[in-house]
Amino acid sequence: MNRFETIRVLDTKYTYALGVIRAREVKLLTEKRFEELLSSVGVEELISAMHDTDYGEYLRNVGKYEAEKALHAAKIALYNDLEKLIDDFEIMRILRAKYDFHNIKVLLKGKIAEEDFSDKCSTIGSIPVSKLTQIVQEEKYGHLPEYLRVAVEKGIDAYYSNDHNPQRLSFAVDSVMAEMLTSSTESPFIVKYYKFWVDLTNLKTILRLLFLERYQDLVDFALLPGGNIGKDTIKKARIENSDSLEELYRGTIYSSLLEWKDSFSLLEKQSERLLISFLKSVAFEAIGVEPVIAYLLIKENEIRNLRIIFIGIMNGVGEDLIKERLII
């Protein structure tokens, strides 16, 4: 009985949002459109080629060096729009959480360096930067949500107990973030998505540590908790080189990614494609918040692709190299 009621509530809660998303989905840029944009000669041409897209209003009267800022404005607007649309603070809080964690990292670094780094904070976070800055300045961490308070405690502790190492601070905060994202009770879909994300991040982290020849030193701290493949499983695998990963990932959906283990750009592309394909698998569901979340994350990826094109063209990077990096 309760189960049906819950579904009905969910159904009606997001019906309007789903309708709006369905209308907006058709405006997502296609691979062909990305290719057209890629062939632009110079940023000015790229800006004018984008006037008929969703980004046109942000790129109007924008100089070539302000395009990145305009895309960021579009991203902020995307989050704000969806927040209004789904009217579910808890879900938006989880989706905005990674920016809150970034902000807390930046502010803690500023606190340690005794400098104001608040201009490096993201305005997409669920807590206003000014409020967060004040809390960190006054050290009133009790005013923070539980997950951020834990992040502050663990981050500071990791920094001071590891010879003032800022990377350890980042690792500690990122671990709390991964725990929070993969244990949320608001949406099983979000949890599934972030577990997937943690696994992919850990796979990339292993390869990064091997590339930097720091695997043995950092594996205990750099891996994120909460994934489908646990930290302990990875640690027990006693990885010495990238070839030993085959055994660890055999039989998982990540095994195909090992084909690109020698190229970080291709590995990044393929792992993001895997995430996108997961998001697209729920994009056509008729009920629930999943398609809305999927739209947000797919749109976020679209903005990243546009940023890659803008920055690539602005710096004279070849079309092939830019295309190689696009996650489409």
Binding site: H72, F117, I124, P166
Partner: peptide
């Protein structure tokens, strides 16, 4: 530099710049 610019484009500017604060 091209590699660097493209790597920069993967993240938001805030996140990218924030990563390089308080370097060791």
């Amino acid at each position: 530099l091209r590699q660097f610019f493209l790597a920069q484009a993967y993240q938001d500017k805030d996140i990218f710049e924030g990563s390089f604060l308080l370097l060791d």
